[in-house]
């Protein structure tokens, strides 16, 4: 390696280190702040732990506050995001597969309408969804959040691209000759070949629902049905009246990030290859 390249390597890496600190310092602060008491929080030494180390006491306080409402919110978020992403991915995969692998009249029209759905902002739907669910008296229920979360037009788009490139037609014909039904072929062969795409769709759908704020805000009155985002925002807006909530908001924020970080790290191998396909073919 020449001297010039070595110094540009050092410069580039140093630049990346500085930028990485921009992305990581806020998260580090959240962890550190979660381990302090009220007084230490405003002591000015925000980026390092202070004595005593109270992270686990604070977590206990948060999850037991108000009869464990935080645990309830976490459970709700898991239900909304977990069920919504699993079923949403399955439905998107099936639809994308059908659009890629079968020829039928109206196929492109169907695909284009679904694709148009990608351009319709989800927030534009929140208010009419609320009015529709109110008509059938279901606005303030889990269904009102869960059912709309099952629809992922972008998932169908990705699934179609993937099914077209990852599932060979010859394989499907072979399965047909073997006497396998279309559904059996899909669930045993195609779904496996579409694996990375499905993990990608699942993760991004999971994140979208986990992060959802507008729809639950419009829909829900009953605080026991809130997801974490809405619950924490409620606490945050009460900080002026109840200062002890500030620490709870900080600890709660930390806790609500952890599941997503774990999911992304654990599934990294899959979604990175899925993202590659989606980005290239788009």
């Amino acid at each position: 390696m020449t001297r010039a390249t070595r110094s540009s390597t050092a410069t580039a890496t140093l630049f990346m280190v500085i930028c990485a600190s921009y992305f990581l310092v806020p998260l580090w602060w959240l962890l550190v702040a979660s381990s302090k008491d009220q007084a230490a929080l405003s002591s000015g030494k925000g980026l390092w732990f202070s004595d005593p180390f109270l992270l686990f006491d604070n977590i206990t306080d948060v999850v037991t506050y108000d009869d464990g409402i935080f645990v309830r919110w976490a459970f709700n978020s898991l239900v909304y995001a977990g069920v919504g992403a699993v079923l949403g991915t399955l439905f998107a995969a099936m639809a994308g597969y059908a659009l890629a692998k079968y020829v039928f009249p109206g196929r492109e029209a169907t695909f284009n309408v679904i694709l148009g759905g990608v351009l319709v902002p989800a927030t534009a739907l929140a208010l009419p969804l609320f009015l529709l669910f109110s008509e059938v008296d279901q606005a303030d229920t889990m269904w009102a959040i869960l059912l709309p979360s099952l629809v992922s037009p972008f998932g169908v788009y990705l699934a179609r691209i993937f099914a077209a490139s990852a599932v060979p037609d010859e394989l499907l014909e072979a399965a047909r000759i073997d006497g396998a039904s279309e559904f059996r072929t899909f669930f045993t062969v195609a779904i496996r070949l579409m694996g990375p795409a499905l993990v990608t769709i699942f993760l991004f759908q999971f994140v979208a629902i986990w992060n959802n704020f507008f729809l639950p805000l419009v829909m829900l009155q009953d605080t026991t049905l809130y997801p974490l985002t809405l619950g924490l925002n409620t606490w945050n807006s009460q900080v002026n009246q109840l200062p002890e909530l500030r620490l709870f908001v900080i600890v709660g924020s930390l806790l609500s990030i952890v599941p997503l970080v774990i999911a992304f790290l654990a599934l990294q191998r899959f979604w990175r290859s899925g993202l590659a396909e989606g980005g290239v073919k788009a």
Partner: peptide, 23 residues
């Protein structure tokens, strides 16, 4: 098979995407 694969998504899409827009 086409109806079976497309059905669930299309029904949900109509109910929770197109219907709210129309509404």
């Amino acid at each position: 098979a086409i109806v079976g694969f497309l059905g669930p998504f299309v029904v949900l899409f109509v109910l929770f995407y197109l219907a709210p827009i129309a509404y």
